[in-house]
Design a binder for these strands. Structure first.
Length: 614
RNA sequence: GGUUCCGUAGCUCAGCUGGAUAGAGCAACAGAUUUCUAAUCUGUGGGUCACAGGUUCGAAUCCUGUCGGGAUCACCA
């Protein structure tokens, strides 16, 4: 949209003409005029006062007068304190709207030739997805959409944490207690099925551990290792991990299983593959319900040995150094970070080594220019270290790495804790919001006449829309409180509220038929409501660009809400189909259509569907 | 303790590249439907923008410090 830019250019000319001062376009501050003042847009002229050495009023009036004679879009002006308020002509508004209509990809940038990989989700395969994963998935997916809108070629990926001691615990429990059960025989979703065995392992282990505490051995350990004055319960609480790694029979069995897996033992490998497959089938259902897909998958079982070559390279480049015991380190104290180990003395990789290797693998696979990692803020430091290492290794994409960091989700009752069973399960939550949408819809009966299948689709769109919007409207970096009751709200600042604005528009467009779609119009008057909507439309490209730069979907969510809100008001105060003239009717239909389209685009960028009816 | 993020209405959140009298939603109360779908709209009340300094014509926004909360600081992942 170039109209606002032309006014900015005129402003620069006005300043040059009136005062002989040259301004750069980024020195100009233009806002929408606050509703208590007369005007549409407002220039803040305080910054000019020093340069020109006249009073703000004098400067404002001079520029205003200049614009009045030289800039046809400006039809009136007034200066209040340091603010020059401009009123714009009818033709500005109608041409602006027409400009939006004529641009099929309005708000979207042309391809910029850059390829970015966005990583999100990245679950462990020993238990089902929960609320935290949902926030991660929604952020990653939306960010991917927003980057696409900004002209990037985007590859969605995840690193599937499919190996390690956790999955071995599930496997061991299944071996011992499963009696050959399968998700089918148990009638369960695969990820939940496997998760049950993970829980079972913990239960059995705790039982074993409690038994141990009263054996002679246990008492001897307590006496030998306790801290001064520490009672038995406290001691054993802290000792749990050590017990797992030393005396525990189950711990030993799980660790043996991990070793067998690493040695590619056929029986263990096939059990591992079978149980992971169950989990993936479960995950895929959840991903589908959330409407997300991946372009590529990386499995930790494939990548966990990667990175060793990077360590060798790093040593020869002088990025890493070897200690006497054979361990390899990087010293980043010069940039305010610590020393960090990248390879153990026994020659095995640590977590970050894997990440280095995976990054290199991804570059080898896709030749990407940049990467976005959607990872919770508890790993801020880890990602910071990773990026610094990749930079020092001279990786070609290292200058453009971004950690999409987000805060953890709390419940009104406090933190989610798996030990206390307060973790909100993703599938349960999805079912709940759809159920709520069903109840709300039943009260209204608007869609009752539609075929069953279509109804279900709409209920899903509304329920999931409520849930997604509730989570995505909050700035990523902020820790958020998730109140299950509020998450299913469908009134006020919610997904369904925005969807409802869209649905109203579709209803109008259906009723108006083809008679008025795309009809030319020449308006003789314009409502404040209409101006406000057009202002929103003009803002959209800037919002999208900003959301992309900031990796911040909440900016789009808030924009969509503001637009929907102003549409609802417009809808209420102004007749559209029964407008006072054919011109006004055509104009309002055209305006509604563009609002609907932009709402759709904005929600698409959030990964939220728009129902046609509700 | 070091580092880092957060602190805005009773609650959940916007606003943060400095601009006019800090905005929404929820909750409470009062209204609006012979009208394009009321998942809507209108109105009322509700604030030392954690606190204290500083920079500035101007600070919720930038800087410093304090307080409160989270995270992190493994040869774990």
């Amino acid at each position: 949209m170039e109209f606002l830019k032309s006014i900015k250019d005129s402003y620069i000319k006005a300043v040059a003409d009136c005062f002989g001062v040259h301004l750069e376009s980024d020195e100009i501050l233009i806002n929408e005029t606050r509703k208590e003042f007369e005007g549409d847009y407002t220039f803040v002229i305080f910054p000019l006062v020093k340069k020109i050495n006249k009073s703000p009023e004098e400067i404002g009036n001079a520029i205003g007068n200049w614009l009045l004679t030289h800039e046809s879009n400006v039809i009136a002006h007034n200066t209040v304190k340091g603010f020059l308020n401009l009123s714009l002509s009818l033709s500005f508004w109608s041409r602006s709207l027409a400009g939006v209509s004529q641009e099929p990809r309005y708000g979207y940038s042309a391809p910029n030739g850059k390829k970015v990989m966005v990583e999100f989700a990245s679950p462990n395969t020993n238990k089902p997805l929960h609320l935290g994963h949902i926030r991660n998935i929604l952020l990653g997916w939306s960010c991917s959409k927003i980057l696409k809108a900004n002209g990037y070629e985007v590859i969605n990926t995840q690193i599937v944490n499919d190996r390690g001691i956790a999955i071995c615990k599930s496997m061991l429990a299944w071996q011992r207690f499963g009696q050959g059960a399968t998700p089918e025989s148990a009638g369960m979703k695969g990820d939940h099925f496997v998760g049950e065995y993970y829980v079972r392992f913990e239960q059995e282990f705790v039982q074993e551990y409690q038994g141990f505490q009263f054996t002679d051995m246990g008492i001897a350990v307590y006496e030998a290792k306790k801290k001064e004055g520490q009672d038995m319960a406290t001691f054993f609480k802290e000792y749990k991990n050590t017990y797992f790694n030393t005396y525990s029979e189950m711990g030993a069995a799980a660790k043996a299983m991990l070793l067998a897996w690493e040695a590619k033992d056929p029986e263990i490998t096939s059990l591992w593959a079978k149980m992971n497959e169950w989990v993936y089938q479960g995950f895929n259902v959840t991903y589908e319900n959330l409407g997300v897909t991946f372009d590529s998958l990386y499995y930790e079982s494939d990548t966990y040995l990667l990175g060793k070559k990077a360590v060798d390279d790093g040593i020869s480049k002088g990025v890493f150094y070897r200690e006497d015991d054979g361990s390899v380190w990087i010293d980043m104290e010069d940039v305010g970070m610590d020393k960090k180990i990248v390879m153990r003395s026994d020659g095995t990789s640590v977590y970050i080594t894997q990440d280095i290797g995976t990054a290199q693998q991804r570059y080898a696979d896709y030749g990407i220019d940049s990467m976005v990692y959607t990872v919770a803020d508890e790993q801020d430091y880890h990602l910071k270290v990773l990026f610094e290492i990749l930079k020092r290794l001279g990786e070609p994409y290292a200058a453009d790495l971004h950690h999409l960091s987000y805060g953890m989700i709390d419940l009104p009752t406090g933190k989610m804790k798996s030990r206390e069973g307060t973790v909100v399960d993703a599938d349960d939550l999805i079912a709940e919001v759809i159920g709520e949408a069903r109840d709300m819809s039943a009260e209204r009966g608007e869609i009752a006449a539609l075929p069953k299948e279509e109804q279900e689709d709409i209920l899903r769109q509304i329920g999931i829309g409520a849930l997604k919007y509730f989570i995505i409207k909050v700035q990523p970096k902020k820790r958020m409180i998730f109140d299950p009751k509020e998450s299913v709200d469908m009134q006020g600042q919610t997904g369904p509220y925005v969807q409802n604005a869209y649905v109203r528009i579709q209803s109008i467009l259906r009723k108006s038929g083809t008679d008025h779609a795309g009809q030319p119009y020449s308006i003789s008057d314009i409502h404040d409501n209409e101006k406000t909507l057009i202002k929103h439309l003009l803002n959209f490209p800037g919002i999208v660009a900003d959301a992309g730069k900031q990796y911040d979907p909440s900016a789009i969510a808030n924009f969509a809400y503001a637009l929907a809100k102003d549409f609802h008001r417009f809808y209420h105060e102004v007749r559209i189909l029964n407008a006072e003239s054919e011109d006004a009717k055509s104009f309002r239909i055209a305006l509604s259509k563009e609002v609907g389209r932009i709402l759709w685009c904005a929600f698409d960028m959030l990964g939220i569907e728009m129902p046609a009816r509700m």
